[in-house]
Design a protein around this nucleic acid. Structure first.
Lengths: 340, 340
DNA sequence: ATGAAAGCGCTAACAG
DNA sequence: CTGTTAGCGCTTTCAT
């Protein structure tokens, strides 16, 4: 009778392969792990019968026994936000060649689910964590991590042994504001985002540039969404307090502002100049043509991944902080001299 | 001497908690799993000392022992594509309340990495798989899955016991083409995508509508990217073979076509009408204003997740196929009667 | 409620 | 190259 193939097909085990091939279980392990010397003959025999039996190595058991998962966990806030996808791309660029797998965990902005995401990633015993999400101060991240090698992206929680990679938000917003000032604007509003470090940085860069020009600042609330940008602009319009230019916390906010401007028949940039932040794909679409600040998200992801691999190798070393320079991308939404 | 807290902080185990709390290891397990009756007193004691010791349940060991991971794997093609993010959202809507965790795996379009993604998800022993990616015919998916409960999204590989959720691509493209015909267009080109089932469906819907109107079809190649859309349009322009309208495989392609049209000083929709597919966020941006077909990606993800949960519960049942109706969203890029 | 015993599928260390 | 002995951290079953 041939070996019956009924039942749970997934439970083919190393022992099964060994038995079928007539070799020791260890030999199978050696072959599959590609370590040590195994005669070509046996190698092929093992590989062939494994293939034949439909054997798949149980990563759970492997990791449990070897105490390493070769995976790194990435906590991301919102899959829809291009910036996070860019982070992820950069991370993959680095970790895949190094033989690590990515465990992606999405979480919403509230504190509980961030904690849940981290818990889950640690529960999976990821070798290291990448946090590309806002970290509320009340979270006690240090305690949550309990020593897991971690690198943050975009924010710096300033915890011992936690590296951080971020853009220079202050500088980015400063440059953008200077650009608007250079275009002759005096009345410039900053449509803020949620109270994150990034918002703080961008806000202060804006304030600094305005102060240098001896101009008063004006900040209105937003929430990093299109709806928020629309609402913010509409309110100013209603209260007849429209500025001549707005600097937005991010591109989404700017897209909302653009929508509102169009609906209100405001000409951009003539009646209102608009600048975003992130330089997402859509910023360059014809008809959108949004001036924005590129914070090199992909590079940030890659650098963060590199730092993490180093930290995994040497968990005790001092925390490293990396800041990437932002780049102002000029487009039609803020400039009277439109390029093609 | 207090228990030293040096060394690998993560290796607090159930046995440690039990010892510290002065109870049995099984009791700890019971409390943590929230099953059976445990006196409130002991419950709290266990929970407290676990918290104190910074204990985290090892998901690997748990899964290995219990033979279920409570996780479902989602293979996605491209994080940057909004449609996939929508799928993921829908999936999360369903599986999170059900107590399942999402394992996200990104892969590129080539056959090898799709196989790798599936292998990896199976290796992690995901309880079920969701495949939101093109499945090449040569892949022998059935063999690869080896019985793992699976639902595909967007394509139907037609494998026994594999459920599929997809949009009615033929109908979507048919409606879009009819719309263009209704606008008076006779010369309509379809800018195709890669050879996927979705492309086949959209292509035939287009052909059907054209045939009904006794008009010849014209299909040019694209690759589902902006660059592809740009290239396709530019080539027609160069060879003086511009149609009056183009139907694009997806929104990305359409955005590329829009860029090209603008650069070539073509007025949209007067000189050229453009229709996309997917109804992504950016389609509704002011200045883009792209007519597109909404395929209800989020709902597709949710339905797929529901089917998967059912299949996990009953792996033997017959495959179910679900088709969601597409919806044409009219915007300025295709219509002379522009709204708002 | 607890304890004992067995086992999930694998790696690791070492003697042969 | 093979076999043995351990053990990873947890669940499960059964008896107490």
């Amino acid at each position: 009778m041939p070996a019956a193939s009924v039942g749970d097909v997934r439970s083919v085990t190393m022992a099964d392969v060994a038995r079928e091939a007539g070799v020791s279980r260890q030999l199978v392990s050696l072959v599959l792990r590609e370590v040590g010397y195994v005669s070509e003959e046996k190698r092929e025999l093992v590989l062939r019968t494994a293939e034949q039996l439909g054997y798949r190595r149980n990563a759970l058991a492997t990791s449990l026994a070897s105490r390493r998962t070769n995976s790194i966990g990435l906590a991301i806030f919102d899959l829809h936000n291009q910036v996070y996808a860019d982070f992820a791309d950069g991370v993959l660029d680095v970790i895949q060649p190094a033989g690590f797998q990515l465990l992606l965990s999405t979480n919403t902005r509230d504190q509980k689910s961030i904690a849940a995401a981290v818990e889950s990633l640690i529960g999976l015993r990821a070798d290291g964590l990448l946090l590309a999400t806002h970290i509320p101060g009340e979270l006690n991240l240090a305690r949550l991590l309990a020593g897991t090698p971690t690198v943050t992206i975009g924010e710096d929680p300033d915890i011992e042994r936690v590296d951080a990679v971020h853009g220079d938000d202050r500088l980015g917003a400063y440059q953008a504001t200077r650009h608007l000032l250079g275009q002759g604007h005096r009345d410039i509003v900053y449509i803020a985002g949620p109270p994150t470090q990034q918002n703080t940085g961008r806000s202060s860069g804006y304030a600094e540039a305005m102060a240098e020009a001896s101009l008063p600042t004006r900040v209105v609330e937003g929430d990093a969404t299109e709806a928020g940008g629309e609402r913010a602009l509409l309110e100013m319009r209603r209260s007849e307090a429209l500025p001549t230019a707005v600097l937005c916390y991010n591109d989404s906010t700017a897209f909302g502002a653009l929508s509102c401007a169009q609906r209100e028949r405001l000409r951009v940039p003539n009646d209102l100049a608009i600048v975003g932040y992130d330089n997402t794909r859509a910023a360059s679409y014809p008809g959108v043509d949004l001036t924005s600040i590129d914070q090199q998200a992909r590079a940030m992801g890659a650098h963060a991944a590199e730092l993490l691999l180093e930290r995994i190798a040497d968990p005790a070393r001092a925390a490293e902080k990396l800041t990437l320079a932002p780049q102002l991308i000029l487009r039609g939404s803020s400039s009277f001299y439109r390029g093609t």
